[in-house]
Simulated assay, not measured.
Amino acid sequence: MTIGEVDERVPSAPESTPAPGHTPERLAMFTDAIFAIAMTLLVIEIKRPEGKALKDTASLWRFLTHEWESFFVFVLAFVLLWTVWRRHHVLMDQVVRLNRAFTAWHAPLLLLVAFLPFPTALIGEAFDNPLAICVFALSEAAVLICEGALKEIAHRTPVLSEHADRAQVRRGANSSWAVGAFFVVMGALAWSVPGIPVAWLLAPFAAAYGGALIERLRRQL
């Protein structure tokens, strides 16, 4: 019997009123709030032009081009948070009740999401510093590992609706593991390879091909 077969046979949660403290809606709303705050704080960390930088068009242009790293990392971090939030939104729309493990894994996920503006600001100020790159990459990897853990718990335990596609949830977990591993590798390469942050644009390919590879390996176990 394969892992996939075991997962598919996990019973769905009964369509009943959740116990107090186990309502998916409240957890989803709180998660949405943390993501919204973190995504807003990203732009606050971008340096503003002051003094001579505002004297004329040429000075302002020099300032903006000099700060391109900050804008690049802001957009990248925003898109990463957006995609994690969007996938979490899809997952929570299929959850009908909570259990202790599923709820508990939200704590490190939201802690890391709230923390992400700091490494984003750090790498914006030190774009070529391998330690700054490593801190950002490992922070993002940790977010994705928590996301993968949530999806694993969701397809292995009876928290999903009877109409949920458990196989799709499992494939989503595989993609999260793959991109998390991708960022760990990128963090390690930062110490020897210049321009690593630009390579982070390849994350969608890591999700697609790495996730498919993990799914294939899991079916063979």
Rank of each mutant, 00 (worst) to 15 (best):
A107I: 13
W105G: 03
G172Q: 05
A149Y: 06
Q168E: 10
P108G: 10
G172S: 09
G180E: 04
V159M: 05
I196Q: 01
V169P: 00
D128L: 15
G124V: 10
A126F: 04
R171F: 14
F182K: 06
A126S: 14
V169I: 14
F127Y: 14
F182H: 03
A149C: 12
H155K: 08
L122C: 12
H163N: 07
V143D: 00
G124L: 14
C134Y: 05
A141V: 02
V143C: 06
E147N: 08
D165M: 12
L131G: 07
A173E: 03
I123F: 00
A114M: 13
T120M: 12
W105S: 10
G148L: 08
H163L: 10
I133Y: 00
M186E: 05
A141K: 01
A126R: 01
G180Y: 10
A199E: 04
S176P: 08
K151G: 06
R166F: 09
H155N: 07
A141M: 07
W177H: 12
A164K: 07
I153A: 10
V135F: 00
F127D: 04
L131Q: 06
R166K: 12
S161I: 09
P130T: 02
V184K: 00
C134D: 02
L111E: 01
L112D: 02
T157K: 13
G180R: 09
T120N: 02
I123Q: 00
A142R: 04
P197H: 02
G124N: 03
G180V: 13
V185M: 13
V169D: 02
R171M: 06
G148W: 02
A190S: 15
G124W: 06
A164M: 10
L144Y: 07
F183A: 02
N129K: 11
T120Q: 05
R166M: 12
V143H: 03
P117N: 07
C134H: 03
A132Y: 00
A188V: 14
H163T: 09
R156H: 12
N129E: 03
A188R: 00
H163D: 08
A188L: 15
A132V: 04
D128P: 13
L112W: 04
V184T: 11
A173I: 08
L111Y: 07
P119N: 09
E152A: 12
F183C: 04
H106C: 14
R166I: 13
S175A: 15
